[in-house]
């Protein structure tokens, strides 16, 4: 069953001379429960594509259909609810909120939805990501890797249907990276989640159920 369908996506940034066509007619469908990896050179449009999938950006043309709902028909406030319920982000640029503790940061999507956290699950995740003893610290007290791990925990806590990750193991040492990958894979299998990841790491690409190559805004067959 396809959880994510993308039809003829186009997106251009900038105007006039400096215009860049980030996505040039992308068609893609992702099956539910599968691990997909997106590979491409920098500037090929991978991040833009991931943004579209998560409702972080609106395409110029084309449709993004997630779980039967067309994202372009949603208003900003509905997109916000979509983002916190259905999608988990692990991104380089959207970091932790500096004025909240690690625990509050991890539980943030749930607080936004007004839901209570599943404490067992929370314990499991924090243990696996070795954050158990750093729960009351503030983000600036953690190392880069620690912050990344906290961001990953935040992405998983709401058990979203889709996990979108942009180089999630970039800052991490091998031990943590293994744990992260293992956790992601386990999450995917246990909760039947779909994982779409951008990476340069061929090992990880090997692990995937499917590899998608992007170049100049188009998918290579």
């Amino acid at each position: 069953m396809d959880i994510l369908t993308i039809k003829d996506l186009h997106k251009t940034y900038g105007k006039g001379e400096g215009a860049v066509k980030a996505l040039d007619g992308i068609d893609l469908s992702v099956e539910k429960g599968k691990f997909t990896v997106i590979i491409g050179a920098s500037g090929s449009g991978k991040t833009t594509l991931l943004n579209m999938m998560g409702g972080l950006d609106i395409p110029d043309e084309g449709e993004v259909i997630v779980d039967g709902v067309n994202l372009s028909g949603l208003k900003e406030k509905e997109l916000a609810v979509f983002r916190r319920n259905k999608v988990g982000f692990v991104y380089q640029s959207f970091n932790l909120i500096p004025t909240l503790t690690v625990q509050e940061n991890i539980l943030f999507p749930l607080s936004l939805a007004g839901s209570a956290p599943d404490s067992v699950f929370f314990q499991e995740i924090t243990e696996l990501l070795q954050l158990k003893d750093r729960l009351t610290a503030y983000p600036h007290e953690l190392s880069g890797g620690g912050q990344q791990r906290a961001a990953i925990a935040r992405a998983l806590i709401a058990k979203p249907s889709i996990l979108l990750a942009d180089e999630p193991t970039g800052n991490l040492d091998s031990r943590s990276g293994q744990n992260v990958l293992g956790l992601l894979k386990m999450s995917v299998e246990t909760y039947h989640q779909t994982l779409v990841m951008i990476t340069h790491n061929l090992e990880i690409a090997q692990m995937a159920d499917r590899v998608v190559r992007i170049e100049d805004g188009r998918i290579l067959a």
């Binding site: 509905e78 609810v81 319920n85």
Partner: peptide
Amino acid sequence: QPYEDSLTAKVQGKLLQYYDIMQE
């Protein structure tokens, strides 16, 4: 309305989640 920010949608979402798990 799955993406409405209301109490109804919240409970509905959770119920459907539960249903999915049961179904699964």
